[in-house]
Design a protein around this nucleic acid. Structure first.
Lengths: 121, 121
DNA sequence: CAAGTGTACTGTGTATTATAGTACACGTAG
DNA sequence: CTACGTGTACTATAATACACAGTACACTTG
């Protein structure tokens, strides 16, 4: 009922946090995530909001949920999805246009990518 | 009053379209943009929605508005803003994490950047 | 003055987000 | 079997953002 000014939806922020933890190895494949009620206490959210994040992550094949047991980190299948590919290219286009405006050269972007590919798994 | 399923707000889509046109040289520095009412007819939007986009673009120093005259493309100042920098890095992190999941290697991302830096201005 | 410009309002309607609370079906440990 | 924890599915309420409609005002220019 509070509802403060919010940039990104809470459930998307949680999705992002979980994805990052999986990518960085904090969460391993097959590992069990906290239950929706448990995660709600940890993150200070409503169980419904956590459930929404879990459901969206399952739709993206990031996690697997088994009713009665829990939710688990799914193995990365590495499927080449044309829709995701074009979406990533579009997002990269936005980054480059903004970078140009801020006088950030291509080298900086290349450096970031190398760093990120090193950090992640 | 219709309100169909929408992924991104219309005014943000318009902002993006204008930014792209500026970056690609379709709109040149100092050039006058269509008026809010004119652009509303062109894009099939409400003048208020166009005004919202114009106002947001001016807040980002992309365009300059003069009451009674019109809105014009502003010169790129190329300021290094720490907030924008970290925001771009965050956005790049998202791209890399998603790319890893889709089994897209770093070479593809490097290639995209080179292409985009070539296309733009 | 007249026309065109951005801007600032007040409404209206809708979708999304987030919470609260309840209930149900399932799996597992006691 | 019972009890507990699990995800899930509801209903309801509230706050926010989005988009449109309409009106009005201050400004610049011809």
């Amino acid at each position: 009922m509070p509802q403060i000014k919010r940039s990104q939806p809470l459930y998307e922020q949680l999705m992002w946090r979980i994805k990052t933890q999986i990518a960085s190895g904090v969460l391993e494949i097959g590992e069990k995530l906290p239950s929706v009620r448990e995660m709600a206490l940890i993150e200070g959210l409503n169980p419904n909001t956590v459930a929404k994040a879990y459901k969206a992550l399952e739709a993206q094949n990031v996690i697997e949920t088994v009713t009665g047991k829990g939710t688990f980190v799914r193995e990365n299948e590495g499927i080449v999805d044309d829709k995701l590919l074009s979406q990533l290219h579009l997002q990269m286009t936005e980054v480059v246009i903004e970078a140009k405006r801020a006088a950030i050269d291509a080298e900086q972007l290349h450096k970031w990518i190398e760093e990120l590919y090193g950090e992640i798994s």
